[in-house]
């Protein structure tokens, strides 16, 4: 066997090497060289074109879409997400106990089918949003923000800007007797889908609004007081009624305010509520029943 393998090896070693093998090798090297150059060139072209593409996409989209431009302009401002508020029923709370905060700015950001209202807090400790509670109301459709630990409301001037919105019909400050809290309402033209996100560093609340299919809210009977101008009278009235559920202050169609003490399906139930209140708080508070559609403002009552 070994001998035979040795013979075979001899045969192997006798394999004739073709004369042209050197030129074949040179050709192989050349091919490799060309490939290598192309590879480098290809990579260079790929690299340059991808950079160009990024710039192109950026320029095109920033010009084509105002939403994109807006989102870019706000990118450095958006802080860290703290939470997406969970609404139970129509209420939600968030934030941390603090004091001396200024509600610094309220701004509106429009996108194609949605809008965002950004409420920015200044001077808050650790750049965290102060304690706030939010409730979504009907009759009229609105959202009421109550922010505690706030001493200043610089953003009041920004209410004007919210008028640009397709969803918001009005926004206004609501009196509160608590001098460390600020309350304001945002009224909507129609029912909305809403989502609230809280951010820190910087402290902000972002309210996202989207179109909502028409709710089938029926007209309701509302227990309310007469209208008063913005002022302490309202606050005192509210305070006196505060033992009852669903007490709120609502702006009427002429810009004065009424305290409301509940929304009921039927006139009877509304009457019951009035009786309850009379029994408890005395009969000097004049209460009325007003029938309203879900998107209707209270009428002024002198």
């Amino acid at each position: 066997m070994d001998k035979r393998i040795n013979d075979l090896k001899k045969m192997y070693m006798d394999i004739k090497i073709p004369d042209n093998i050197d030129s074949i090798i040179d050709e192989g090297v050349k091919k490799g060289e060309i490939k290598m150059k192309n590879k480098f060139k290809g990579n260079l072209i790929k690299g340059i074109s991808s950079i160009a593409a990024v710039f192109l996409i950026f320029t095109v989209s920033i010009n084509a879409s105002s939403a994109f431009a807006n989102s870019i302009s706000d990118v450095p401002v958006i802080g860290k997400l703290v939470q997406v508020l969970q609404f139970t029923g129509n209420k939600a709370q968030g934030g941390q106990v603090t004091d001396g905060v200024d509600i610094g700015m309220i701004s509106l950001r429009k996108a194609k089918n949605s809008e965002e209202v950004i409420i920015k807090f200044n001077k808050s400790q650790d750049n965290i949003a102060p304690c706030y509670s939010i409730s979504y109301e009907k009759y009229p459709y609105s959202m009421i923000f109550t922010v505690s630990g706030v001493r200043k409301f610089s953003a009041e001037k920004d209410f004007e800007a919210l008028k640009q919105s397709n969803f918001i019909s009005d926004s206004y400050n609501i009196i509160t007797l608590d001098d460390s809290a600020v309350r304001f309402a945002i009224n909507f033209k129609k029912p909305v889908k809403y989502e609230v996100k809280e951010y820190k560093e910087p402290a902000q609340i972002v309210l996202s609004l989207k179109e909502c299919e028409k709710g089938n809210d029926k007209a309701a009977y509302i227990v309310r007081t007469a209208s008063y101008p913005q002022g302490e009278t309202l606050g005192i009235l509210e305070e006196r009624l505060c033992g009852f559920e669903n007490i709120r202050i609502v702006k009427d169609d002429k810009g004065t305010f009424a305290v409301e003490a509940g929304t009921f399906e039927s006139e009877e139930k509304a009457k019951e509520r009035i009786k309850e209140i009379m029994n408890k708080c005395g009969s000097d508070i004049k209460l009325y029943i007003e029938k309203r559609e879900a998107n209707q403002l209270p009428k002024q009552m002198q």
């Binding site: 073709p18 093998i21 192989g28 091919k31 490799g32 060289e33 290598m36």
Partner: peptide, 14 residues
């Protein structure tokens, strides 16, 4: 075999 040789040279060079 020559074709393989060329392929080997090309691959090795790369």
């Amino acid at each position: 075999a020559l074709e393989i040789v060329q392929e080997v040279v090309y691959k090795a060079f790369l």
